[in-house]
């Protein structure tokens, strides 16, 4: 187990191992998303309260909670990079920042589209929305810091430190957002009802789209990391041979 883990930290091994694996993961992801979204958006029955508006949850809910879990993954990667100096971990962390910020953005935008017909406004300072917005800011900060350095080493170490500072801070931010909300007596209208209260025709497609988006996260992270590996290791012999092979075939 440890040996496998250690080997995965080598950029070359990571690249070669994912070469065969990623197309299958991508296909499975596509299938799950297609089933979840076509079923959810096209065939699931309309909600008795919200009509067809609710369908946005097939994207909104998984992206919103995905954004948090991606941060957790990024923090673990940052810690591994700081402690064991594993370069692949840093490359994965870099991909996490990008996709995490995108998921936040998607969650916020879909939330707004859902909010307009439901509450009559695109934005309310609800605890969940506020916390997601701040999470988005934190992602942006990590990306901005990384891009500010010329030196790759300094950039990745600095981004790791900020990521870890953020992970201490995020639970506090979430707590603060909820606390602030109750202080101002805004009810949390975005309270999603208990999933089991919905008929299975509604929640089963949500499970498909949820797993599909998890797959999507990993597909994007792996592809992004593979690009990063090629970029950073471009002078390594194995990369140059790979390029020779690819261009030879083309």
């Amino acid at each position: 187990m440890w040996q496998w883990f250690y080997k995965l930290g080598s950029p070359r091994y990571f690249y070669e191992m994912t070469t065969g694996f990623v197309p299958w993961l991508a296909r499975a992801t596509f299938l799950l998303l297609a089933i979840g979204l076509v079923w959810g958006l096209g065939f699931a029955p309309p909600d008795y309260q919200m009509g067809d508006n609710y369908r946005i949850i097939y994207i909104h809910v998984p992206t919103a909670s995905g954004a948090i879990w991606i941060y957790a993954m990024m923090a673990v990667m940052a810690a591994m990079h700081m402690i064991w100096n594993i370069k692949v971990a840093d490359m994965v962390a870099k991909s996490c920042a990008l996709i995490g910020a995108s998921f936040c953005a998607v969650a916020l935008v879909t939330g707004a589209f859902w909010g307009k017909p439901t509450w009559g406004t695109y934005w309310i300072w609800d605890a969940k929305l506020t916390a997601t917005l701040i999470l988005f800011f934190v992602y942006v900060g990590v990306m901005a810091l990384r891009s500010a350095f010329d030196s790759e080493t300094a950039a990745s170490k600095a981004a790791s430190v900020l990521t870890l500072v953020g992970v201490v801070n995020l639970p506090i931010i979430y707590y603060a957002a909820y606390w602030w909300n109750t202080l101002h007596q805004r009810s949390s209208e975005l309270g999603v009802r208990d999933a089991s209260a919905n008929p299975p025709e509604i929640w089963i497609p949500a499970v498909f789209s949820g797993f599909g988006l998890i797959g999507l996260i990993f597909v994007i992270i792996i592809l992004h990391t593979r690009n990063e590996i090629l970029l950073r290791e471009r002078r390594a012999q194995w990369v140059q041979e790979l390029v020779k092979q690819e261009t030879g075939n083309a």
Partner: peptide, 29 residues
């Protein structure tokens, strides 16, 4: 984090402000 960067003013704000929000919330609270 930004001491080695020549012009860090705005970047500093982008890094620091989100992390300061809880203090702001409880302080004004």
């Amino acid at each position: 984090l930004t001491v080695a960067l020549a012009r860090s003013g705005v970047l500093l704000a982008v890094l620091v402000l989100p992390l300061s929000i809880p203090v702001l919330v409880f302080g004004a609270g």
